[in-house]
Amino acid sequence: MKVTIEENEETGKFTIKVKTEDGEEKTIEIPKENLEEILAKLPPNVEII
């Protein structure tokens, strides 16, 4: 699983794009305050880009 994290400076939010092993892609946008909480919940086999 690969996770790409991009900061949107205009909105102050982060866009998180997840690509699973089977090629499925999902995108979510979260507030900056929630980034550490989300990262802590990721499984250890995740590659963060």
Rank of each mutant, 00 (worst) to 15 (best):
M1R: 02
M1W: 14
M1T: 08
M1Q: 04
M1I: 11
M1G: 04
M1V: 08
K2T: 12
K2Y: 13
K2R: 14
K2E: 04
K2V: 13
K2I: 13
V3R: 01
V3S: 01
V3Y: 09
V3A: 02
V3N: 01
V3F: 08
V3C: 11
T4N: 03
T4Y: 15
T4V: 08
T4E: 05
T4K: 04
T4P: 02
I5K: 01
I5L: 05
I5C: 07
I5F: 03
I5R: 02
I5D: 01
E6G: 03
E6W: 15
E6K: 05
E6N: 05
E6R: 05
E6D: 04
E6M: 12
E7V: 13
E7I: 14
E7L: 15
E7R: 12
E7Y: 15
E7M: 14
E7N: 05
N8Y: 03
N8I: 04
N8V: 04
N8A: 04
N8G: 04
N8K: 03
N8H: 06
E9Q: 10
E9C: 15
E9V: 14
E9H: 13
E10W: 11
E10T: 11
E10R: 10
E10L: 12
E10M: 12
E10C: 14
T11S: 08
T11C: 12
T11L: 05
T11A: 04
T11F: 04
T11E: 07
T11Q: 05
G12L: 03
G12Y: 05
G12N: 06
G12P: 02
G12W: 06
G12V: 01
K13L: 11
K13A: 07
K13W: 15
K13R: 12
K13T: 14
K13M: 15
K13C: 15
K13G: 15
K13V: 12
F14V: 09
F14E: 02
F14N: 02
F14A: 04
F14C: 09
T15H: 06
T15A: 04
T15K: 09
T15V: 12
T15M: 09
I16G: 00
I16M: 07
I16A: 00
I16L: 07
I16E: 02
I16Y: 05
I16Q: 00
I16V: 09
K17V: 11
K17I: 13
K17S: 07
K17H: 12
K17F: 13
K17R: 11
K17N: 08
V18K: 00
V18H: 02
V18A: 01
V18N: 00
V18S: 02
V18T: 06
K19Q: 14
K19Y: 15
K19F: 15
K19W: 15
K19D: 04
K19H: 11
K19M: 14
T20R: 04
T20C: 15
T20H: 08
T20V: 05
T20F: 15
T20E: 05
E21A: 13
E21Q: 11
E21T: 09
D22H: 07
D22R: 06
D22T: 09
D22V: 05
G23T: 03
G23S: 03
G23Y: 03
G23W: 02
G23A: 03
G23M: 02
G23F: 02
E24W: 12
E24V: 13
E24G: 08
E24L: 10
E25S: 06
E25P: 02
E25F: 10
E25H: 04
E25A: 03
E25R: 02
E25M: 08
K26I: 15
K26V: 14
K26H: 14
K26R: 13
K26D: 04
K26Q: 12
K26N: 08
T27C: 12
T27W: 15
T27N: 05
T27I: 14
I28Q: 03
I28H: 03
I28P: 00
I28R: 01
I28A: 03
I28W: 15
E29V: 15
E29L: 10
E29Q: 08
E29G: 02
E29W: 09
E29D: 05
I30R: 00
I30M: 04
I30A: 04
I30T: 04
I30L: 05
I30G: 03
P31Q: 10
P31E: 13
P31W: 14
P31Y: 13
P31T: 13
P31V: 08
P31D: 15
K32P: 08
K32C: 10
K32W: 13
K32S: 07
K32F: 10
K32H: 08
K32A: 11
E33D: 08
E33W: 12
E33G: 09
E33N: 07
E33C: 08
N34W: 15
N34K: 14
N34I: 13
N34R: 14
N34P: 01
N34Q: 15
N34T: 08
N34S: 12
L35A: 02
L35M: 06
L35C: 07
L35T: 00
L35G: 00
E36R: 13
E36A: 14
E36M: 12
E36W: 15
E36Y: 14
E36D: 11
E37K: 09
E37L: 10
E37I: 10
E37Q: 12
E37G: 07
I38N: 02
I38H: 06
I38Q: 05
I38C: 12
I38Y: 15
I38T: 08
I38W: 15
I38S: 03
L39Y: 02
L39T: 00
L39K: 01
L39C: 06
L39F: 05
L39P: 00
L39W: 04
L39E: 00
A40V: 04
A40S: 12
A40L: 11
A40Q: 07
A40R: 11
A40C: 13
A40M: 12
A40G: 07
K41N: 11
K41V: 05
K41Y: 09
K41L: 13
K41F: 10
K41Q: 13
L42I: 04
L42K: 01
L42M: 06
L42N: 00
L42G: 00
L42R: 01
P43Q: 05
P43W: 14
P43V: 05
P43S: 09
P43F: 15
P43G: 15
P43N: 07
P43E: 05
P44Y: 14
P44D: 08
P44H: 12
P44V: 09
P44W: 14
P44L: 09
P44T: 08
P44E: 07
N45P: 05
N45H: 10
N45A: 05
N45S: 07
V46T: 10
V46H: 05
V46W: 10
V46N: 02
V46D: 01
V46P: 03
V46A: 10
E47A: 08
E47G: 05
E47N: 06
E47L: 14
E47K: 09
E47C: 13
I48M: 06
I48Q: 02
I48N: 02
I48Y: 09
I48C: 08
I48H: 03
I48V: 07
I48L: 07
I48E: 02
I48G: 02
I49F: 10
I49H: 08
I49N: 05
I49C: 09
I49S: 06
